[in-house]
Amino acid sequence: MLATLRRQRRGLVILLVLLAVTVVLAVLTGRYPSPGLISPAQLLKDPLAQSLVLNLRLPRIIAALLLGSGLAAAGLVFQMIFANPLVEPGFLGVSQGAAFGASVSIVAFAPALWIIQLSSALFALIGLAVSYIMARHFHFGGWVLRLILAGIAVSALFSSGIGIVKFVADPMSQLPEITFWMLGGLWSVDWQQTRSILPVCIIGITLLLGYRWRLNLLSMDDRTAFSLGLAPFRERLLLLVTATAVTAATISISGIVAWVGLIVPHIARRLFSSDGRYALPASMIIGAIYVVVCDTLARTVLDGEIPLGVLTSFIGAGLFLVLLSKKRIKKGKYRGESTP
C-alpha cells in the first residue's frame, strides 16, 4: 500500500513537472516574430513580444489550464457519480444548454462577449436544473437512468432550439459567429474573461478535490453508499452542481470543447488507478496539459486559427478508439459487459 502510494505520488509530481514544461513552451510558442519558438533571450529584448506574451498568450494559456483541468475534473466526477465511464460533463443538457444560451444572445443582443458568456453559463445551469426536475418526475427506472434519459431529452430540446435560432440568424454575420462558438476556441480570451471565471473554477475545483476519496463511495450503488453512512442523494447533488458550475464557467468563454471530459479521465485511470484520490488530480493535470497543447497548436500551426474544439475532438476521438480497442476495456473492465 505504501509502495503504491509513493508510486502514485511520484507519478503526480512527474505530471506536474510535465505541465510546467508545457506551459513554459506554450508561452514561448507563437507566430511572432516568426512561427515557432522564441528564445527567452530574444523575448527579453523585444518589447512587442513581451506585450504579446503578457496580454494575449498568458491569459489564453491560463484559460486553457482552467478549461482543461475543469472539464477533466468534471468529467471524472460525472463518470464516478453515474458509475458510467462513458459519461461526460456535457451530459444532462449542460453543453447544449450553453450552446443555446450563446446562440440566443448572439442573435438577440449585440454580440458583446460578456453577454454571450453570461447567457451560455446561465443556460448550462438551466439545462442541469430542467434535466434534474424532469428526472424526479419520471416514473421509470432507477434514479441514474432517469437522469440520463432526462439529460438526453433536454439536450435534444436545446438542439432543436439552436436549429431555430440558426434558421432566423443573419447568415452573413450572426450565423458564422454561432458556428464558431460551437466549434470552440480561446482566440477571443483576454485577462478580463479569464478573471471572470477564476473564482467559480477555483472554488469548484477545490471542493471537488476535497471530495476525491469520497467519490469512490459515491460510485457504489445507492443502498451500499447509504449503508456506509453517506447521504448519497444529497452528496451526489452537491458534486453534480459543482462540476456543472465549473463546466458552465469554462465553456462560457471557450464555446463547446468536446472530448476532454470524456477521454482524459480514462487516461488518468489507466495511468494511475480508479481510486479518486489519484485519478482526480491526475485527470486535472492531464486535462490541463492536453488543452494547453491543443490550444498552442490551434494558434500556431496555421496562419489562421484552428477551432480548439475541432482539435480536441480529433485527437480525443482518435485516442478513444485506440483505448477502446485495447484488451482490458474490450474484455469488460467496467462491469463485465461482454462484446459480441
Binding site: S219, S273, Y334
Partner: peptide, 8 residues
C-alpha cells in the same frame, strides 16, 4: 454488488 471501477 458490482464493482464498477477497478479498485484494488
Amino acid at each position: 454488488e458490482q464493482v464498477r471501477f477497478d479498485y484494488t
